[in-house]
Simulated assay, not measured.
Amino acid sequence: MTGVVLSIAYWVASSLVIGLACAHIPVRILRLLGRSAWWLRGPSPHWYRKAIYIGLWKDRVPEAGRFGGGVSKRHLKSRDRGVLERLYLETIRAELVHTGLLMVQCFPIVWLKGGLLVLPIGYAVVANLPFIAIQRYNRARLSRLVGIEDRRILDE
């Protein structure tokens, strides 16, 4: 039981640390990352709607974009090109948070034993993969809206 309590404390602490660290990544770094073709790869928005029914559940998950001074991605404040470009960059920030968490939240397997070994892996997957999918879905939609396939749009 102590291992489970320690795991929960570790998950909360790692979420806070990684969330705060990523909240302070400068926009210029997000632009630099956004210029990489890697962020533009992946399934189309159509795939996310048909394969994992993202439209049915994405608005029901928590959104912590404002945590640590970040920007909420829940609703479009405006359809202004600058706002859409910033939202695109925020999807990169959010994906960095959840990818980082996915990597570190499996660590409690070090102190858990027996059947509890599946707990950290299950938690890391369930707590992060849906959010990564949402960011990729939103980024694919936003890239079409503002023409980010042309990476020069992300130049300062």
Rank of each mutant, 00 (worst) to 15 (best):
L145I: 06
K58G: 01
V97K: 04
A51D: 08
S15H: 15
P108Q: 01
V110I: 15
L40H: 11
V146Y: 02
L154N: 03
Y48S: 03
V4S: 11
W47D: 05
R81S: 12
R41N: 05
W38K: 03
R81I: 11
Y10P: 03
L101R: 00
L116Y: 11
A124V: 11
G68Y: 12
R79M: 14
V4R: 08
R79S: 10
P62Y: 01
R41Y: 06
L116T: 10
K73I: 13
L87R: 09
E156K: 12
N138K: 04
G115Y: 08
I109L: 13
P26N: 13
E95K: 00
P108E: 07
R60M: 10
I109F: 14
W47P: 08
A37S: 15
A37N: 14
R144F: 08
G55A: 05
R66G: 07
L6K: 11
V110S: 06
L96W: 02
I109A: 09
P108W: 03
I52R: 07
R139F: 06
L89N: 03
Y88A: 09
E149L: 06
I109G: 12
A23K: 01
V71L: 01
R136Y: 00
Q135G: 14
R79T: 10
R151I: 09
S78V: 11
P45Y: 06
G42V: 01
D59Q: 15
R49Q: 07
T91Q: 08
A94M: 02
F107T: 15
R144W: 05
V27C: 08
G82W: 04
G68I: 07
G70C: 00
N128S: 07
A9L: 15
S143F: 00
V110A: 13
S36P: 12
R49E: 15
A9F: 10
F67N: 05
V27I: 13
I54S: 03
Y10A: 08
E156Y: 14
R41I: 03
R152N: 11
H46C: 12
A94K: 00
R141P: 00
I109P: 14
I92C: 01
I29P: 03
L84T: 10
R136M: 09
G19V: 02
K58N: 15
I8F: 12
I148P: 04
L117R: 12
H98C: 00
P62E: 05
G69R: 11
G69F: 06
N128M: 00
D155W: 10
W38Q: 07
I29W: 08
